[in-house]
Amino acid sequence: MQVSITVNGEQRTDEVEPRLLLAHYLREVRGLRATNIGCDSTSCGACTVIVDGLSVKSCTVLTAQADGAQVTTLEGLTGADGELHPVQAAFRAEHGLQCGFCTPGMVMAAIGVLADNPDPTDREVREGLEGNLCRCTGYHNIVRAVLTAAQAGPAAGQVPQAQEVEA
């Protein structure tokens, strides 16, 4: 079947099998390998991306279900000039990663948390990231990073191309 999906501002039409998972589409068809597959069973959040403004676990979404959608992956956060998204910058500043495997999903989920709630408490950040596991268990710094990112203002809860793309 044909799907037409805008990823990080770039629209493309591809021929895919109906059973192709969005995570595999992003990695294998679009060549965007930042999105990791950890548990492959909707538990760890490593595969989190933003679809039409909402954080979702791409290992549990069919590519077909994203037909016509706007998808943002970690690759889509950095500006053309290499400037980091406020959440990325905060993860760097606060040492919000160790091995880095969970980080792409954590960053995308954190943007989702801040989109809902631009000024969260420590507890609200922890609840908002309940669907993301860090095997290195660096949760304190991750939470600190999200709280730091919130200080950057509303941009921390937005994805860049959501503003650029017009229907």
Binding site: T42, S55, K57, T60, A109, G112, G131
Partner: peptide
């Protein structure tokens, strides 16, 4: 139910 990503779907 579940976590925010699950509730989004």
């Amino acid at each position: 139910v579940g976590d925010p990503q699950v509730r989004h779907r």
